[in-house]
Design a protein around this nucleic acid. Sequence first.
DNA 1: GAATTTCTGTTGAATTTTCAACAAAAGGAG
DNA 2: CTCCTTTTGTTGAAAATTCAACAGAAATTC
Lengths: 219, 219
Amino acid sequence: MKKYFTILRKCPLFDSINDNDLTALLSCLGARVNAFDKKYTIFSEGSPARYVGILLSGSAQIIKTDYYGNRSIVSAISPSELIGEAYSCAGAESIPVSIVANEPSEIMIIECERILHSCSNSCSFHQQMIFNLMRNLAVKNIMLHKKIDVTSKRSTREKLMTYLMIEAEKQGSSRFSIPFDRQELADYLEVDRSGLSAEISKLREMGVIKSNKKQFELL
Amino acid sequence: MKKYFTILRKCPLFDSINDNDLTALLSCLGARVNAFDKKYTIFSEGSPARYVGILLSGSAQIIKTDYYGNRSIVSAISPSELIGEAYSCAGAESIPVSIVANEPSEIMIIECERILHSCSNSCSFHQQMIFNLMRNLAVKNIMLHKKIDVTSKRSTREKLMTYLMIEAEKQGSSRFSIPFDRQELADYLEVDRSGLSAEISKLREMGVIKSNKKQFELL
DNA sequence: GAATTTCTGTTGAATTTTCAACAAAAGGAG
DNA sequence: CTCCTTTTGTTGAAAATTCAACAGAAATTC
């Protein structure tokens, strides 16, 4: 497990827990690591919400398909992020979304119960992890509010610009790359792909943005 | 404070904490109660995110106004619900939304720090409240996902039907009333009010729903 | 209870988005 | 390197949403 420590240290679940304790903690939690190839489903819609995942390498997307078959991308996941914790922490029966690897990826999987309830060894980290989960969920709440800010906009242009500004802020630069291709960006913004392409072209002509494939710059 | 106990008992922050302890706990937390008239702002956008609110009576709405001046309603709040906890728990500088009383309302206000950090009396409830906050934030996460399900839909009709189905499920009946008038519902669904009215009329003619003002029934 | 204000539903015109189809460019496989 | 697949940008037609304006209904105020 040692080779994952660089990533795990960045995972909000292990804030304020130092490396020396991590090995023991992970075995106490029964953590295991699974690998998934590109396009493979890590957690599938409808499966029990018992597990928390930590993305160790690669990238993933949270996908929702409604009963009309429309695919929408809820969010993109990068290494050290927690996955599925909202559903398992809330005690939901099953998860209503799928989580799909976007490239070959490794995931650490932990049964949520083993985080929330003290173990027989009565190791002292559960309180800290519950606090960490609380903070992480609060941060995700804010991120979901931002996603709502995006999808709430009425026009393709406003959705796109709102998303680009959030992304620029998150990455701390007016130049940044996005984790989506055009179709995926459309599925994330909930707009028509061809209309989105047209809008990007217009904004480029207007001198509002520069862009090349997944690279964007706000001017 | 005793008169608020019926409501406070339902507040997720106080799960698994019994009435006997509540009086001491509230004074330990420095809880105070404020009253607001209809249309008055309880927390205003940009103010420090230090406080958690509990709606004791009345009702409220979380309002967001973007730089174009478009009002959108993020959610409706009813008694015993927590307000603003995501921002204060995440350690945000300020809150990006306003919370407005929708009728004369009473709010209990607690400084979030006093929940998260043990007090000098070292009373034993902080761990339980942190757990409760974690669970509450997880549940709210799921609710935000549902809100995204609504605003993600492309057409007014799909947004409306998705919202009505969620509301029917939440209220446990195909007959239910919504907490919004027409303009507010439009601001919640992020659609045009007149188009929304037209859509409601059509769905009624089609025999998909019955409705009268704020009363709806799914057929 | 009369007057005023707010709320709701309708309508037609203007604007946007979606849809469908295509061609060029880019990327991957063998 | 060539062939095949995927991705991207364009375009025009169809469909839907937004906008603006209005009239009747309902609620509120004095």
